[in-house]
C-alpha cells in the first residue's frame, strides 16, 4: 500500500506479508493471517450474474437463498476474480520475487527521500519469512531506503534477531503479559516473544513497543500493572498504546469469517488515559494512537 503514513516516519509504502503464527481475535488485517491467498467477496458490488459459478473449475460457487456462496472446494485459483468485471470477487495475496518487490517499492523513492520515509514490513508476520525478508532488507539498505518492521515477536530466536537487526526500527507488539492469557487470546504463549524483545533491546536497537488496548482482554488494572512492571525493568523503550477499533469488521464479512469480538466496544478515552498514566508513572515514555 502506497502513501502509508501511519506506520513509521514520513511517506511510506507498506508491504503486507501473508501469514501469521498468532490468531488474535481483534486482528484488523485478517486477510493476512493465512500463509496462502485469501478470497474476498464484496457483496455490494456483486451483480449476481453468476459467471463466476460458470467458470469455477472446482464448481465451488453457487447461489443459495439469493446469496452467492463459495464452498470449501475452492482452491483459490482466481479464475472467478479474473472473470468478475464488477470486481466483487478478488484474490488477495500473490508471490513477489525480490526484484519485483524492490521495483514496486522504488516507485515512491522520491517521496521517501523527501519525507524521511521508506518501507514498512507488516502483515501477517514478516519475520515468518526470514530468508526473503533478510534479502529484501539488505536490498533496501543498499538503495538507502529506510525500513520498519511491524512484528508480533513470535519467531525462532536466532533468525529473529539476525533479520530484525537489518531494519532501521522495529514496531514490536505486546498483547498480554500473562503467558496463559496470551495463549488463550492469541493462540501461543509469550515467553519466546519476550525473549526476542529483550534480545533486541540488549543490542540497543531502535524499538517501539506497541500495546493494542482491547477492552475486557488486556485493560484490567492487573494487566496494566504487569505491563508497567515488565517494561520498566527493560532498557528504556518508547511505548505506544493502540486503541482497539472495529473498522476491520468489514474485512471479516468479505472473507466470509466470523468476528469474535462483536460485543467489544472501542476503549473509552478515560480508560486510555488511565492506562497511559499507569505506564508513565512507571517511568515510561508513552503516546496514544497511531
Amino acid at each position: 500500500m502506497r502513501f502509508a503514513t501511519q506506520d513509521g516516519p514520513g511517506i511510506r509504502t507498506t508491504i503486507f506479508f501473508k501469514g501469521c503464527p498468532l490468531c488474535c481475535a481483534w486482528c484488523h488485517n485478517p486477510e493476512s493471517q493465512r500463509f496462502l491467498p485469501d478470497r474476498v467477496y464484496f457483496e455490494e458490488r456483486c451483480r449476481h450474474c453468476l459467471e463466476c459459478a460458470g467458470v469455477c473449475p472446482q464448481h465451488a460457487i453457487g447461489e443459495v437463498d439469493g446469496r452467492v456462496e463459495t464452498s470449501d472446494a475452492c482452491d483459490y485459483c482466481g479464475t472467478c476474480a479474473g472473470i468478475c468485471m464488477a470486481e466483487a470477487r478478488q484474490i488477495l495475496g500473490r508471490r513477489y520475487t525480490l526484484t519485483e518487490l524492490i521495483a514496486e517499492v522504488e516507485r515512491d523513492l522520491i517521496f521517501f527521500d523527501d519525507s524521511g520515509g521508506g518501507v514498512t514490513l507488516s502483515g501477517g508476520e514478516p519475520l515468518s519469512q526470514p530468508g526473503f525478508v533478510s534479502a529484501f532488507l539488505r536490498a533496501c539498505k543498499e538503495r538507502e531506503i529506510g525500513t520498519v518492521i511491524e512484528t508480533c515477536g513470535f519467531a525462532q530466536a536466532e533468525t529473529f534477531l539476525s533479520t530484525a537487526l537489518l531494519a532501521d526500527r522495529i514496531l514490536f507488539d505486546l498483547k498480554l503479559m500473562d503467558p496463559e492469557q496470551h495463549r488463550l487470546h492469541t493462540g501461543v504463549r509469550n515467553e519466546a516473544i519476550l525473549r526476542n524483545l529483550e534480545a533486541l533491546l540488549a543490542r540497543r536497537h531502535a524499538v517501539t513497543v506497541r500495546i493494542p488496548v482491547i477492552p475486557g482482554i488486556n485493560d484490567s488494572e492487573e494487566a496494566m500493572a504487569q505491563f508497567a512492571g515488565y517494561l520498566s525493568g527493560l532498557p528504556p523503550v518508547p511505548v505506544t498504546l493502540l486503541p482497539y477499533h472495529r473498522t476491520g469488521i468489514a474485512k471479516y464479512v468479505r472473507l466470509g469469517r466470523e468476528y469474535a469480538l462483536e460485543a467489544t466496544p472501542q476503549p473509552a478515552a478515560a480508560d486510555l488515559e488511565r492506562f497511559r498514566e499507569v505506564l508513565t508513572r512507571a517511568g515510561l515514555q508513552v503516546t496514544v494512537g497511531g
Binding site: F3, A4, H28, L242, T247, I249, A250, V253, G289, G290
Partner: peptide, 14 residues
C-alpha cells in the same frame, strides 16, 4: 483509524 482506506470500499455503516 490506524490506517487509510478507499471510502467506497468501506461498508455503508462505516
Amino acid at each position: 483509524a490506524g490506517y487509510s482506506d478507499y471510502f467506497c470500499d468501506l461498508t455503508p455503516a462505516l
